[in-house]
Design a protein around this nucleic acid. Structure first.
Lengths: 235, 235
DNA sequence: TCTGTTCTAGTCATTATGACTTTTACTCTA
DNA sequence: TAGAGTAAAAGTCATAATGACTAGAACAGA
C-alpha cells in the first residue's frame, strides 16, 4: 500500500512503489487426461486498477523483512502454501506497468510439493489454473508468467530442481512425468532411466510401489542438497 | 538521494530507497603478462556512508526511465562507456546493506568492447581494477561483483556472449583468449578451434591478421543476433 | 492360465569430447 | 639466405554421451 496519494503532476516526482510478487508452480493431475500438469494459483484483484481480473499473489515490501522473506510471507498469506523452492526471478520496472502509480515489482518464483499443493485452499478470490491456460491477467503478469515458465524449463534441464515437485520417495517414472509436464514433451522411458541412474544424488530404497497392474517400480530418494531454497547469489 | 531524512525510529516506516548499480566488465591486457584480463571500473564515494571507499557505479532511479535505461545512463555518466551487452543481474534488498537507510539495489551487468574500454576516462574518482583484485568495496559490493563473475562465467559457456568483448572481426585465438580470461584456465587451441568452426554464427572472412611472427591467422566475423543488448525477459 | 502393462536391463550406431600429431606459413636471427 | 622458432590449421584416435530400439521380468485382472 502506498503511503502517499498523488495526482498526475506529482506522480513523476515520487519514488516508484516497490512490490513483491510470486509465481507459484505445482503439479496437479489434469482433470481429463489424468497426467500431471503445471498449475499456478492466482488471486482476484479486489480494487482498481484491474479490479476483478486475476493476478499473481503479491503485495508491498515490509520495511523489516528481506525480499525473500516478503515473497515467502505473502505466498503463505494468500495461498497458505509452504514452498519447497523459492528463487528470485526478475525485477520488472517498466514505466507503464500500472496505470496509476509507477510500480517496480521484484518477482520470485516458487515450487511446491504435491502434498502441499493438495492442502492449498481455494476460495472466491484464490483460484488455481493451468499454466498454459491463464486467460488475461492484470498488469504485465502474463508476460511475467511466461518468463517464469521459460526459467523453469531451462532450470529443470541443468539442475536438480525437479525433486522440489516430488515427495521424499518416488519412482523414476514419476520423475519422468515431472520432466514431461514441465518440458511439454514425451521422453523415452529407458533412456531417461539410464540418465537418472547415472546421477549420484539419487539412490534406490528397498521399497516398491505396489498397486499398479504391472511390475512394481522401485522407490528412490533424492540425497542432493535440498534444492537451494535460498536461491540467493551468496550460494 | 533520499528525499526524506529520518531518525532511527522513523526509518522502519519509510519505503526503502531504490537504486540502480552496474557491474561493468572489459578485457584489458595485464600490465605484466600482457594477456587479456578482466577489469572493471569503480567510483570513489564522496560522501557517507563508506566515504572514500570504492564502489560500483550507480545512482537513484529517475521516475521517467526504465530500469535498463537507468543502468545505461549512469554507466554512461560515470565512465563514459557504451556497453555492447547489458542485462539485469539481481535485486539486492537485504536489511543491512546500508548503515543509514534501507536500500534496494537493482544491479545490472555490462560488457564493453576493447575500443570502448580504451576510451574510458580514468579520473581521481574513477579507477579501473582487475576483477580478481578489488580490495574492500563499499556496501555489499564485493559480494555483488562475485555473483556477477559467476554469472559471466556461466553465460560465456552456453551463450554467444563472448563476442560482446570483441570487435567486428577477430581471430579464433582472440576468442579463445576471451574464454581463457573469463574462465581463468587454459584451453586446447585445436579443440577450441574445432568447436568454433562447428557453430553456425561465426563465419570466415577473406582477411588475415598480419604482423605476428608466425602463420597469419584468418579473421572471422560474428553473424548471430547481436548478443541481446536487451537481456529482458521479453526475449 | 493368458493378456496387457510398465519396469528394468540391455544392444547398436552416431555424435561429442579430450589428448595429441603433423603440416603450413609466417618472422626473426645467424 | 638458410635455418630456427612460433602459432595457425587440419587431422587422428580413444573414450564418453546420446537417441533409437529390443527383450525379458513382474505384477493385476480377466
Amino acid at each position: 500500500m502506498p503511503i502517499y496519494s498523488a495526482n498526475v503532476s506529482e506522480r513523476a516526482q515520487q519514488p516508484p512503489e516497490l512490490a513483491i510478487s510470486t509465481v507459484i508452480f505445482a503439479l496437479r493431475p489434469d482433470p481429463e487426461a489424468g497426467v500431471p500438469t503445471l498449475w499456478l494459483p492466482l488471486v482476484r484483484r479486489t480494487r482498481q486498477p484491474f479490479r476483478d481480473l486475476w493476478a499473481l499473489p503479491g503485495g508491498p515490501l515490509s520495511p523489516d523483512e528481506s525480499l525473500q522473506d516478503a515473497a515467502a510471507r505473502n505466498l503463505q498469506e494468500t495461498t497458505g502454501l509452504q514452498p519447497s523452492y523459492l528463487e528470485q526471478l526478475y525485477a520488472f520496472g517498466g514505466l507503464d506497468r500500472s496505470p496509476v502509480q509507477r510500480v517496480v515489482s521484484i518477482v520470485y518464483w516458487a515450487l511446491v510439493k504435491p502434498d502441499e499443493a493438495a492442502l492449498a485452499r481455494e476460495t472466491e478470490n484464490v483460484r488455481w489454473v493451468r499454466a498454459d491456460d491463464l486467460g488475461q491477467l492484470a498488469f504485465d503478469h502474463n508476460r511475467i508468467v511466461e518468463y517464469a515458465l521459460w526459467r523453469l524449463r531451462n532450470k529443470v534441464e541443468y539442475s536438480s530442481i525437479a525433486y522440489a515437485f516430488l515427495g521424499s520417495t518416488f519412482t523414476l517414472a514419476q520423475v519422468r512425468e515431472v520432466y514431461e509436464a514441465v518440458l511439454g514433451k514425451q521422453l523415452d522411458p529407458a533412456n531417461f532411466r539410464r540418465q537418472l541412474r547415472a546421477t549420484p544424488d539419487i539412490e534406490p530404497t528397498d521399497e516398491y510401489l505396489q498397486g499398479g497392474r504391472h511390475r512394481p517400480p522401485r522407490l528412490y530418494r533424492y540425497t542432493g542438497s535440498a534444492a537451494q531454497l535460498s536461491g540467493s547469489p551468496s550460494a
